[in-house]
């Protein structure tokens, strides 16, 4: 029967017991073949004893689980020690360790790189907010119907075409080096602002397409239902379509967000001292590449929690669609 919580029907005995109660109570009628049990006893947890065959099945499944765990452990241990052995015994390993995994160098470089990373994080947060807003706005522009809005639709389409086509690095060069060189009055010449703007422009085009895909994936019946209630286009979008669309596209959005965390490092090319640039400076003194490894490690540490936390939230709130079903 429906497990999804359709309202239980009454079984027709007149006093309106919900069916669920009847079932749990083991059928109040005396005519039922099997022994009917008092409702109170059953409601919480009945005295049901698994049969011998069920216990055997459970024992077997438990055994399989333990066996799987054991196999996984042995396999992992073998592979890891084998790989570790091969790497550490190879002839170039001491030099690799000295150049890439130098503990003292890492400790020295860490504060500077961490300082730079703080700039990456600030850029990331500001950009993420702007990108979400602009991306959504562009996506919504493309949903507008009617001839009056043609220029908006055209602008949105042209924008996404242009900025998805342009290499991000090129946009960063154009804005970061180009605009301050104009020496226009009242225009900031801070590289961070122009680099950040380049990232926002590029990413908004991608995110807009993600949002648009989500909006278009919502079944037209949802729109029809909303319009039939008297909601106008904007209200339909705001209260019905976009909330569903956002949930549906959350995984790809997250993907773009993680990508953004790393690409915030691209503004290093403008000479801004972020984590990557700081690592480069540290490296330049003695050609020891450990600071890059430190920066890479910090970036990874930054992205993993974001993914895991959002994944967890999404699962808990059931944002990932219909859930498991067969």
């Amino acid at each position: 029967m429906s497990l999804a919580g359709t309202p239980p029907e009454h079984d027709g005995d007149g006093h309106g017991d919900p069916l669920a109660e009847n079932l749990a109570a083991g059928a109040s009628s005396a005519h039922v073949d099997e022994g009917s049990q008092p409702p109170a006893q059953v409601a919480g947890g009945e005295p049901w004893q698994p049969s011998a065959i069920e216990l055997e099945r459970r024992a077997y499944r438990r055994g399989r689980t333990v066996r799987s765990g054991l196999i996984a452990s042995v396999s992992t241990l073998t592979v890891v020690s084998l790989v570790g052995f091969i790497i550490t015994r190879s002839s170039g390993w001491p030099r690799v360790r000295q150049t890439f995994f130098n503990w003292d160098k890492a400790r020295d470089a860490f504060p500077a790189v961490l300082d730079g990373l703080w700039l990456n994080i600030r850029i990331l947060l500001v950009c993420a907010v702007l990108i979400t807003l602009i991306g959504l706005a562009i996506a919504l522009m493309r949903t507008l119907r009617g001839p009056v809005f043609f220029p908006f639709r055209m602008f949105a389409a042209a924008y996404t075409d242009l900025f998805r086509g342009l290499p991000l690095l090129l946009v960063i060069f154009l804005l970061g080096f180009g605009v301050p060189a104009l020496r226009l009055p009242n225009v900031p010449d801070d590289m961070v602002i122009w680099g950040g703007l380049a990232i926002v422009l590029s990413y908004s085009a991608y995110v807009a397409e993600v949002f648009r895909a989500g909006i278009e994936s919502i079944h037209p019946s949802q729109r029809a239902a909303a319009r039939s209630l008297g909601l106008n286009h904007a209200q339909t979008m705001r209260f019905v379509v976009v909330p569903q669309a956002v949930r549906r596209v959350l995984p790809p959005l997250l993907n773009d967000f993680v990508s953004l965390q790393k690409d915030s490092g691209l503004i290093a090319v403008l000479g801004v001292v972020d984590a990557i640039r700081a690592a480069q400076i540290e490296t330049a003194t003695d050609f020891n590449f450990t600071p890059y490894v430190v920066a890479g490690f910090l970036f990874v540490c930054l992205t993993i929690p974001t993914t895991r936390i959002t994944d967890h939230l999404a699962r808990r709130h059931g944002w990932y669609g219909g859930g498991p079903s067969l």
């Binding site: 029967m1 429906s2 359709t6 239980p8 029907e9 079984d11 069916l19 079932l23």
Partner: peptide, 17 residues
């Protein structure tokens, strides 16, 4: 049988779903 009486569940158990 009435809704929720387990008709579908029987079938799904038989099909090992």
């Amino acid at each position: 049988g009435p809704s929720g009486c387990g008709k579908s569940t029987v079938l799904r158990c038989v099909n090992l779903l």
